[in-house]
């Protein structure tokens, strides 16, 4: 009995948010990053590579060689972290970071070793996608807490001329 109003409230809030802020990019843009595969399979000295993080529904520019002010994406080098090797993908619009994700993750050849199907997973959503039914607003403690995440992130931002 008491649940129905809650659901309606949530839907209305979400709808208003969508209506009023329709220019905000979609949160789950899972796209292919051709360059990420080779980057993740290589040691941490691999040269930074560029790739696309756009989805099929809303294609994004495929490299940082876009006109200034456009949306640009870069993939940082694959670096070691405590459980393997990861690389970070960053999308910026002008000087704002609009998306950060894990471009590749390889935990070292064990059976659960994975490349995330060569998809870029936004950091907020990666575990949500895995958990499927779990509607969550954040994740506490994750690969992106590691020093490796920070290294790959800063390198990707550097490619885009940020800091």
């Amino acid at each position: 009995m008491r649940r129905a109003p809650i659901v309606i409230t949530a839907t209305v809030a979400g709808l208003i948010a969508v209506l009023e802020f329709h220019t905000r990019p979609a949160q789950v843009n899972v796209g292919t990053i051709p360059a990420a595969g080779s980057a993740a399979a290589s040691p941490a000295t691999t040269a930074p590579s560029l790739g696309s993080a756009g989805s099929g529904a809303s294609p994004r520019p495929s490299s940082s060689s876009q006109p200034p002010g456009g949306t640009r994406t870069a993939v940082g080098p694959a670096v070691n972290y405590n459980y393997g090797v990861l690389s970070v993908t960053v999308t910026v619009s002008r000087t704002r970071i609009t998306k950060v994700g894990i471009a590749s993750l390889d935990d070292g050849g064990s059976p659960r070793s994975q490349m995330i199907d060569q998809q870029a997973i936004p950091i907020l959503e990666q575990e949500a996608l895995q958990a499927q039914s779990a509607s969550i607003q954040g994740v506490s403690g994750a690969s992106y807490t590691s020093a490796g995440f920070g290294q790959s992130l800063q390198a990707a931002l550097h490619q885009l001329g940020m800091r």
């Binding site: 993750l105 895995q130 994740v139 506490s140």
Partner: peptide
């Protein structure tokens, strides 16, 4: 309204699981 934030705790042994 009436809904708490839900936050996943990363599985330290499997990077993409909660």
């Amino acid at each position: 309204d009436g809904m708490p934030f839900r936050v996943g705790i990363a599985d330290p042994h499997t990077p993409l699981r909660l």
